[in-house]
Write a protein that binds this DNA or RNA. Structure first.
Length: 645
RNA sequence: GCUGGUGUAGCUCAGUUGGUAGAGCAAUUGAUUUGUAAUCAAUAGGUCGUGGGUUCAAGUCCCUCCACCAGCUCCA
């Protein structure tokens, strides 16, 4: 008797070893139809898996993440099969399931264009209609390599050889005329119901820019056509929130060809929001014991040679002058660290000076590659809420927690807290050329950070080879409307630069000691944060952040004076307001204010003037009716102050 | 930087097989003084991203560069 513990805790018993597929069939025909794969003792497996001992047994349908991935993985094989049928010379690289579908990379000349996609889709359609049975088999490494060589798949041979060390048999999946090196799991056949190829782009083999660039096709698939349509509609809907579109339409920023890539112009509305955020950050940091600094935007190459930027970051810097011919060469700063350290170095420091928390609203310049720029999210000049904490070693943990607490406080305030994830970014011991310092120093810093994160019980992912060149990072990640992830906030531990700059303090016993340093930002860089706030709220920023908080709309000229009196009252409360005194119909003015996403409008006609009231309208709730002036002012003032506190 | 795509009025877009540019909204002017998402009319606005080439003739075909979009790499 074999005992299966199902997800609901119930036990199911089977006489003999049998396939997961047969077990699922036994549970129910409907469930079998919906099943994509199974989870056995926590591991996602194929429905083909033979169950021969007691285990925890969970059926994965498309409703689960792992079920979706199985479905999409099979869809990627169907894509590859269609491509091999239409373009026999195309070489296969890899084709995994991803968060929202799947892709497959091919080495093919010329690269696929969008025109090819419809042809490939048509071929895929045939394959799904055929509902070809999928089977799995394994071969010893040498036989597998031989077969892949005979198939003319050099990328697969390379992948296969890597598995040789593990001494395991190599797994393949076969569907009709198509066989692929693959660990699975897969569906039982190719009957994918609804799918669409969404894009074709370039992607480097093994993610290495020095390797050959392959042609990648992205797609997605669903068991029902209606689900696919809903997904595609959702993607279209998300694009409407795109800050790069909305931010330009709502006049937060613009770009100008003659100024250059990655150098956006912040228009009055965008500049205002950033000013609000900056003041908020600077005030909050002051409350938390930060000292404000203002350091130069450029320095001689000498400084960067000490810090290591010259060796590790020069390609990313704007260098002014020529090292060969000029006596002095300057560079715009890509980071604040070596500048702000000079504040500490200004005089001899005692343990009494620590922790020294330095904050700066810091403008940085990074010469990003031309294809990397994106709206306000990735630019060449940006202003960051920068800061460095110089610490006695025993202060590290508490101060690190303080930095994280501050970052989370900021995210909560601007409404992005629920959208972030945490990543512990470590160095790669196999890629030491990229980093400063010794393995011992890295292990020490990473152990310290790892312990702090674990003590906090923080739920984080680990990113190998994602560290800064001088130390490990806790990155707070966020996704934009396209699902692309960027770092919003980072907190880093650095023990290397302190040494390079000879930073020391006199300890209680009179000896010199090396401080620990935390690099951190409280709200990231303002351009990027603004972009994500715009996307989060689809341009309808919360009252305290709205560049224009109230618009006063006189119905006729007779209400103009009264309107300007109200404007003064609002300004007296520190609120940002405007009067739309144009000779236009009230409907037109309301429509415009609504489209510009102003939080509140006052509609002021003869009635309000006569009765000393305000007809209040909110962008969210519409007409709120006439109210006493003081009540309206108090309501808006309270909402503004509550949000900004 | 690489792969694919895009570039026509301030914005959103038309523009047939190459035959010297068009609409709506916005803008300006005039009229209208209007009650909760678009008042009416008139006017003006474009070396069709840039530079070159092919052609009797280029928005349309070819090349260069620039910018924008998605992805890769990179990154706050």
């Amino acid at each position: 008797m074999i005992k299966l513990t199902l997800k609901d805790g119930s036990i199911r018993e089977i006489e003999n070893a049998m396939s997961a597929a047969d077990i699922v069939k036994g549970i129910g025909a409907g469930l079998y139809k919906a099943a994509c794969s199974v989870k056995i003792n926590g591991t996602v497996c194929d429905l083909r898996t033979i169950i021969d001992s007691d285990c925890e047994f969970e059926v994965l349908t498309f409703d689960s993440i792992d079920g979706k991935k199985t479905y999409w993985h099979t869809a990627s094989h169907i894509l590859a099969q269609a491509v091999k049928r239409l373009y026999p010379n195309a070489k296969l690289a890899i084709g995994p399931a991803i968060d929202n579908g799947f892709y497959y990379d091919f080495d093919v000349e010329p690269a696929f264009t969008s025109d090819d996609l419809s042809k490939i889709e048509a071929e895929m359609k045939k394959i799904t209609k055929e509902a070809i049975e999928i089977s799995q088999f394994s071969l010893p490494v040498d036989e597998a390599v031989k077969m892949l060589e005979d198939m003319g798949e050099p990328y697969k041979v390379e992948l296969c050889k890597e598995h040789a060390d593990k001494g395991e048999a190599i797994s393949f999946y076969k569907q009709g005329d198509f066989t692929d090196l693959c660990a699975g799991p897969h569906l039982m056949n190719t009957a994918i119901k609804a799918f669409k190829l969404t894009a074709c782009t370039g992607a480097y083999w093994r993610g290495d820019a020095k390797s050959k660039q392959l042609s990648r096709i992205y797609g997605t698939a669903y068991p029902k056509a209606s689900e696919l349509e809903a997904y595609l509609a959702m993607v279209e809907e998300a694009k409407k929130r795109d800050h790069n579109k909305l931010g330009r339409e709502l006049e937060y920023f613009t770009t100008v060809d003659s100024i250059g890539q990655g150098l956006p112009i912040l228009l009055p509305k965008g500049a205002r929001v950033i000013q609000i955020l900056q003041r908020f950050v600077e005030d909050e940091e002051q409350r938390r014991g930060y000292l404000l600094t203002k350091t130069p935007l450029m320095a001689k190459s000498d400084l960067y040679k000490i810090s290591g930027h010259w060796d590790h970051y020069k390609d990313g810097m704007f260098v002014l002058g020529n090292e060969e011919t000029d006596k002095e060469v300057f560079a715009l700063r890509p980071m604040t660290c070596p500048f702000q350290y000079q504040v500490f170095l200004n005089r001899q420091r005692s343990y009494r000076d620590l922790p020294m928390r330095l904050g700066e609203t810091s403008t940085l310049f990074r010469n990003e590659e031309s294809g990397e720029m994106h709206g306000l999210i990735r630019v060449r000049q940006f202003t960051i809420s920068e800061g460095h904490l110089i610490l006695r070693p025993e202060q590290l943990e508490e101060e690190f927690k303080g930095c994280l607490e501050l970052a989370n406080f900021m995210l909560e305030k601007v409404g992005l807290k629920d959208d972030v994830s945490y990543r512990f970014s470590k160095w790669d011991p196999n890629n030491t050329a990229k980093y400063e310092g010794t393995a011992e120093q890295w292990d020490e810093a990473q152990d310290l950070m790892g312990n702090i994160l674990d003590n906090l019980g923080l739920d984080y992912e680990i990113g190998i080879d994602e560290a800064a060149f001088y130390g490990p990072k806790l990155d707070i990640q966020i996704k934009n409307v396209h699902g692309k992830e960027d770092t919003l906030i980072t907190i880093q531990i650095d023990m290397l630069l302190a040494e390079k700059f000879g930073m020391e303090y006199i300890d209680t016993d009179g000896t010199k000691r090396k401080p620990y340093i935390i690099h951190r930002t409280s709200l990231g860089c303002y351009e990027r944060t603004l972009a994500l706030i715009i996307e989060k709220f689809a341009g309808a920023l919360p009252l305290w952040l709205a560049p224009e908080q109230v618009r006063i709309l006189p119905v006729t000229d007779r209400a103009l004076d009264y309107s300007y009196d109200l404007l003064k009252k609002l300004e007296g409360l520190g609120l940002r307001a405007e009067v739309d005194g144009r000779n236009e119909g009230i409907g037109y003015k309301i429509r415009q204010a609504q489209l510009e996403k102003v939080p509140y409008f006052f509609i002021i006609g003869d009635k309000e003037v006569a009765e000393n009231t305000i007809s209040l309208r909110s962008r969210k709730e519409g007409d709120l009716g006439a109210m006493a002036i003081d009540d309206v002012m108090a309501k808006i003032d309270l909402e503004n102050k509550t949000q900004a506190l």
